[in-house]
Design a protein around this nucleic acid. Structure first.
Lengths: 141, 141
DNA sequence: GTCTAGTAGTTGTATAATGCAATTAGATAC
DNA sequence: GTATCTAATTGCATTATACAACTACTAGAC
């Protein structure tokens, strides 16, 4: 095991990534991980183009383009042409998309709640905040 | 954004998974994520068979079998037949594997250190410990 | 205004990690 | 000893991804 905190973080991050991946791979509800993130981003941060989304998630534009097409095909997002740029458009979440996102979020929350049953409020708070801080750190890099 | 801690954890976990995946996908040093985890597990927890490793990481046996074959081919692990079971064997890390693992770990540590430059010792400790706790929770589920 | 360079998005192709199914060979139970 | 179970391998299909080529549009230089 690791003595120092950096070593521990490094090691636990690797394991976390491995375990989270295997959980979220066989998807939760009807939205896979990418679809869920995309929908969430659009829902919480407003409609957005493929380029912006691909930057946000550090994915290739082509990947996001396909994910967006899949979401559109399912009726969870719709495209609004960008009035200022004929090449671009905005992805906007539909009512159906909102419902789906909400259901999915609840399913995910239920899993987390179950997992963290025995955690104290303070531990939960700290964990959430430290992860948020870490995520912000990651995006700047 | 999320008000309550469970919501925050849920949300940040999804983002963390996304960002970590994209970092570790274009591999660090010469070991990809799976190879690194496998080597690490063998190095720190002693030699182990394919079955045990696949349980540990919740991967299909076939996946681990391929990863192990790749590591063996590179000379990072060797197989020791299980004297008690003719079907099974143990994977043991070689000296070359130890060197490789160590170099790789240092490269990863350097990245983490860079990212967490501005974090306090206490934050680092908390983050590491909470992740470890969460990882243990995950494996029991 | 027109030409050139740059950019948003799509689609084709390749790759890598994975799971599942079938198989082999050895172990265990009765 | 026969039937069942299990560790590992290998073949096959799927999925997420990146990269490259392409289209259509924009913006800047002149």
């Amino acid at each position: 095991m690791e003595e120092n905190s950096l070593g521990m973080i490094e090691s636990e991050l690797a394991i976390l990534l491995r375990r989270l991946t295997s959980i979220s791979t066989y998807k939760i509800g009807s939205l896979d991980r990418s679809a869920y993130l995309l929908l969430q981003q659009i829902a919480y941060h407003g409609s957005s183009g493929v380029k912006a989304l691909s930057d946000e998630f550090r994915l290739d534009i082509s990947t996001v383009s396909r994910q967006a097409a899949a979401l559109e095909q399912k009726g969870y997002v719709s495209r609004i042409p960008d009035p200022l740029d004929g090449r671009a458009y905005f992805l906007q979440i539909t009512d159906q998309g909102k419902t789906e996102l909400n259901d999915n979020k609840n399913a995910r929350l239920a899993i987390i709640e179950e997992l963290l049953q025995s955690w104290s409020d303070e531990e939960r708070m700290m964990f959430g905040q430290l992860m948020r801080k870490f995520n912000r750190t990651l995006i700047e890099s």
